[in-house]
């Protein structure tokens, strides 16, 4: 199937602003799904609220557009009910790590087989440019007109510490890398997190001396470095891109099935003595 066979063309052009990186993530995601040869019927996309969450309206998979921050809770339900389906959760930075922070760490802890994409544009775009837990210090936002003093979460470290078994980071400039990481994340069995730095020219760029999408991508190119590259040792101040965690650990649905099988084999216990009730 061609990439455009996976989208709901009737909703295009999409609602994202000119130059919004979320469209590039959608673009790469479709290519990953195509490369994996997955059918639309075996994919479920569960999103929360925000610009990023609008992705679920554009893909022609099974889709749920749910509550702010709660996409992973809904995704857990879907996966427990239908462990045969592939679940993809595109989350914004606020959606994933502010209101949804608890769902995020606990889904990672359980290692449930869900692919989470954190579309990190460092801002709440849909509501007008408020700072998020991933904005970081010195960023200007409508709610930080004199610059933000809140340090940012490191999504990779947070996901790793919480128990995610696949953790990667890249940007919307590194499109080939993005497609590769998304492909590996979807193929991975367990909780996978791909953080994608995505540009918001309208609310982030405009307030932070980056005039358009071209300049913002150039910033991603200059301010990030491939993990393990010589340059990453020379410039520890640059943000690292790459795959940080890729490991096997028992997956939650498998553990649940094993528990059900064990309990079934043991019977009802001794309380009713097997008597008909």
């Amino acid at each position: 199937m061609a990439v455009q066979d996976y989208i709901r063309k009737r909703f295009f052009p999409h609602i994202w602003c000119a130059g919004c990186g979320h469209g590039t993530v959608l673009n790469a995601l479709l290519r990953s799904v195509e490369a994996l040869g997955l059918s639309k019927d075996e994919l479920v996309m569960v999103s929360g609220i925000g610009c990023s969450a609008r992705i679920s309206g554009y893909v022609d998979f099974h889709t749920l557009h749910t509550l702010h921050g709660r996409a992973l809770a809904f995704a857990t339900g879907v996966k427990m009910g239908r462990p045969d389906l592939k679940i993809i959760c595109p989350l914004g930075d606020g959606d994933a790590l502010a209101i949804g922070g608890n769902h995020f760490i606990h889904a990672a802890r359980r290692n449930i087989d869900v692919t989470t994409i954190v579309l990190n544009n460092q801002i709440y775009g849909m509501t007008g440019g408020q700072f998020s837990p991933l904005s970081g210090c010195d960023v200007n936002a409508t709610t930080a007109p004199y610059a933000n003093i809140d340090p940012a979460f490191d999504t990779v470290n947070l996901a790793t510490a919480s128990g995610a078994t696949f953790v990667a980071r890249t940007t919307t400039f590194h499109v080939h890398e993005l497609e590769k990481y998304l492909t590996r994340a979807i193929a991975h069995r367990g909780f996978s997190v791909v953080e994608v730095l995505s540009q918001c020219p309208t609310h982030f760029g405009r307030r932070n001396n980056q005039s358009d999408a071209v300049e913002m991508l150039d910033h991603f190119r200059q301010q990030t470095v491939a993990r393990g590259a010589k340059r990453s040792r020379e410039r520890p101040d640059l943000m690292q891109r790459g795959i940080f965690v890729e490991e096997e650990r028992p997956e939650y649905c498998e553990q649940y099935d094993a528990l059900v099988a064990k309990a079934s084999a043991a019977g009802n216990g001794t309380n009713n003595g097997g008597a008909a009730s």
């Binding site: 990186g21 469209g23 959608l26 673009n27 479709l30 040869g37 919307t172 499109v175 497609e179 991508l217």
Partner: peptide
């Protein structure tokens, strides 16, 4: 294919379309 992949609007298609090797 950089234009095709960078395009946030999915507006660019190189023709003839590429055959995808699944795997």
């Amino acid at each position: 294919e950089l234009c095709e992949r960078l395009c946030p609007d999915l507006a660019i298609t190189l023709l003839p379309e590429r055959a995808v090797a699944h795997g």
